[in-house]
Design a binder for these strands. Structure first.
Lengths: 336, 336
DNA sequence: TTTATTTACGTAAACGTTTACGGAATAATA
DNA sequence: TATTATTCCGTAAACGTTTACGTAAATAAA
């Protein structure tokens, strides 16, 4: 309807479309008076250049894609928040896609994005096994920055947190506060993110001369209901006095399971989890968390993507590691 | 790089670009053998049509925009989740923008979207006062569906929840459980969403012959820190024995304030809040919430937008109201 | 004065699709 | 056989920009 284009604008001004285009882009080939006239008329008629025409001509989309497992997740929504803010500063647009942890969907999204719809992609991998070869093809055609959920076997720029150290320190904290039998709720096993957390757990146990008991590692299931059952049985059977949960989604069920099993946190069981829950402080008991700088990860990842766009990034395989924050609360309090 | 276009594909097949295009869109003008050949070669060469060229030609973007105040918010992230799923089913792309409650930013986003970048917009309004005239211009040029944060003075299709009834019932619940002096933490005052919640509160008080005391209505401040101070002072000064919070962001500080003031929830103060916190159950004490069907709102809103696209929507000003769910928990327990 | 340079703008091509139009070959009908 | 309809495909224009190229006028340099 209102859709006014550059030709009509030019006509209104008795100029050619080329002149108008150049004036709007502040070209030195246009006199300042003409520029002023054009700007004024453009404002008056509410002219907005058609992005598809621009993009088609210029092969730039001014758009980036963000691919995450889930949007409704404390970590990812914060990361997207950071990404959006950076994009906005640069007048870029942000497309979002969620994979629901399916690498098939992930691959399908990536393929669709190869058409030039976006200038670059920020991705946090689905936890399923990935087709690494496919990723190589992708990143040859499109700048990609990985964040948080990364894979060692896939080359690329990566922003992560200090997963190994965080897990290690978490276990150390449990031990210092009296735990003798520490369980691990594992997830993201196919990704280096998950592997590092697990390794941190294992090494901390070893360094403290804890026995190497594979039974204390629980693998997460397919959905929340299954996870709850798994966790309840895990606790009931193995009776750990401390648990490190590799993701928030596995820590919450521990509360319910402990209530069901009549176990007191932290007396009978101390709990610590990777989590970006805003109000871990208000849980009963308050939850000791490994808090990842989610917003900053988003900002950093987006920032690097823009550096790549501007040819100001020279480390195609660099991994940037931000520090997580261990926040000690009631759920791991030492019992006198 | 790899970017293959329809001409190269056509060349490879000894066909014209037109034939290839038609074959890919399954036109009846193309023989089935040719179609098969084209499809095969397209798959083989990983051909993806350039969306900008298609959009430019067809004046369709296959993209929708979602404008929300904040992404990192339990309600909005769930709504976006719903929207994304519906969009995905239809092979649509989703752009997200956050206004951080600024109507200036909101207006600026909307203006940029008028260029044809998207086929439609889903918006949840910023809580600042809005330029209603501007919205009229917008919705003449672009299909817009409002969700949750809506404004009575702005025409359009709207998806909301039963804000009035929810607030009314919440207050009724507080009264039934013994509250004599019920405060209201107000927000979104410029929007009908906020006005209806407030009115529900007021009418419930009136219907129960409670005195009309404006002092018991607290207006939210500019940020979390200010809100905390406001709330603490509010509780300390007016000593309500019940509080209805119109948004989750005002309920959480109540916990901290009560701890600070040595007040026990629910003994000294009962608390209920509009909230989509996943684990309200685990708070200390567990929080009674008015749970909005956030995901469903997203699904519904997106569904209607697609109906509008397909000319299957005939009610330009209909408001669809979904029901919220009052979940009673410890924070409003009656004290014997 | 002649020639070179700069300024300021217009013309037209290009980006990669889709589609109106047309046409040749084949099949159907008279 | 002559006419009409159908099938299948190609040509070219169009979508709205941006930009290489050209050019006329004005200015500077020779």
């Amino acid at each position: 309807m209102g859709e006014i284009n550059i030709k009509q604008l030019a006509c209104e001004l008795n100029l050619s479309a080329a002149t108008v285009s150049r004036a709007l882009r502040d070209s030195h080939e246009i006199s300042s008076e003409t520029k002023a006239r054009v700007l004024e008329m453009a404002k008056k008629l509410n002219y907005e250049p058609n992005p598809f025409a621009s993009n088609l001509r210029g092969q730039k989309s001014k758009t980036i894609a963000v691919i995450v497992p889930e949007i409704a997740n404390n970590f990812f929504s914060l990361a997207i928040n950071g990404i959006e803010e950076v994009a906005r500063e640069r007048d870029y647009h942000v497309l979002i896609y969620q994979t629901h942890e399916s690498s098939a969907i992930e691959t399908s999204f990536l393929n669709r994005l190869l058409s030039g719809r976006v200038d670059g992609v920020l991705i946090s991998l689905a936890c399923e096994n990935v087709d690494k070869e496919h990723f190589k093809k992708i990143s040859n055609q499109l700048p990609v920055v990985f964040f948080d959920r990364v894979h060692d076997d896939i080359d690329g720029v990566k922003i992560t947190t200090d997963d190994y150290e965080s897990a290690y320190n978490a276990v150390q904290h449990l031990i210092e506060n009296g735990c003798k039998k520490i369980g691990y709720l594992s997830a993201l096993n196919a990704l280096s993110t998950g592997k590092k957390r697990l390794q941190g757990y294992l090494d901390a146990l070893k360094d403290n001369d804890f026995p190497d008991d594979g039974n204390l590692i629980m693998k997460s299931g397919a959905n929340n209901d299954e996870n709850y059952t798994l966790i309840k049985n895990f606790i009931a059977e193995h009776k750990p006095d401390g648990i490190l949960s590799s993701i928030e989604e596995l820590a919450m069920p521990c509360y319910y399971a402990c209530k069901e099993l009549n176990l007191n946190i932290p007396v009978d069981l101390k709990l610590i989890s990777f989590s970006n829950l805003a109000h871990a402080q208000l849980l009963n008991p308050s939850l000791t968390t490994i808090n990842q700088p989610a917003f900053e990860i988003g900002v950093e990842a987006a920032g690097i993507l823009f550096k790549i766009f501007n040819k100001r990034w020279y480390e195609p395989n660099q991994t940037i590691i931000l520090k997580s924050n261990l926040i000690k609360r009631e759920s791991t309090r030492a019992i006198a």
